[in-house]
Amino acid sequence: MTQTDPILRVENLRTELALSSGAIEVVRGVSFSVNKGETLGIVGESGSGKSMTALSIMRVLPRPIGRIASGSIHLNGRDLVPLSETEMTRIRGREIGMILQDPHTSLNPVYTVGNQVIEALQINQQRGGLLQKAIDLLKKVNVADAERRVHAFPHQMSGGMKQRVVGAISIAGAPKVIIADEPTTALDVTIQLQYLELLEQIQQETGTAIVFITHDLGIVARLCHRLVVMYAGRIVEEGTVDDVFDAPSHPYTVALLHSVPHVDRKVDRLYAIEGNPPALHEIGQGCSFAPRCPLADERCRTVAPPTVAGRSKAPDHFAACWKSGELA
């Protein structure tokens, strides 16, 4: 586990969607890396490009409109961008897995969950004793009474159970990286924590790297080692969770942290960031956050911000902001 040899390294990724009104760039030069056994959080509002980044890595962008315009995605030293669909099929599930947001629609309604876990095992070239292996996998993701549940259909299970099954399917091929795209958003709050603990447990047992996409900073604090904050298709801040939470170095991160409600603080109004994220086809030369930023000046609006060291002065803490130094 060295900093120089990450399992997943995304460099200057640019992804476009070809809409009828013209192509728009939804991911605009994103770079980050994840090490073995590490959990990276990707945080941002809806439309910040975090899900598009995940779909780009999996190479499952909406067809035919989505495409990776430039950049590289190195998984275990191999660039995924130039690979053919056939080659990608072999990589998905085995080297990189994904957990989707809504467990209620993520399973095929016509087969039992056991059947679907077995299918995932078959895709990964497992042979013999598959039913037992499926039961073992379900036990691994804490499905109680797995021997009986393996024969249940998805509609006979709760959302939390189904998301566990989806988890079991995604670890069937023992991937080195799992991308989890808001896997707890559709779950009851009481189940969310259990599911996060399950992900941690899987990570400890298998050493899988996890990329956790969320807009919930509480989850990031609970689960992740490092995080990147995305805004309008760009990374605006990156660092360890401790550094970013203690010394947020981009006005957007500051505002995000400020808008998390606290139980122990009584306020009349919850804080919200003024305005809306920019429409992606309206982005100009300067900082995308400038229109909503309290510190923005003329330079912010006209010149793209540089990447500067974060206020924590840690070597792996960066922000893309002109005014980082003025934050207190």
Partner: peptide
């Protein structure tokens, strides 16, 4: 989509 990301 889930089947695709699972390598189907």
């Amino acid at each position: 989509a889930r089947a695709r990301v699972a390598g189907a």
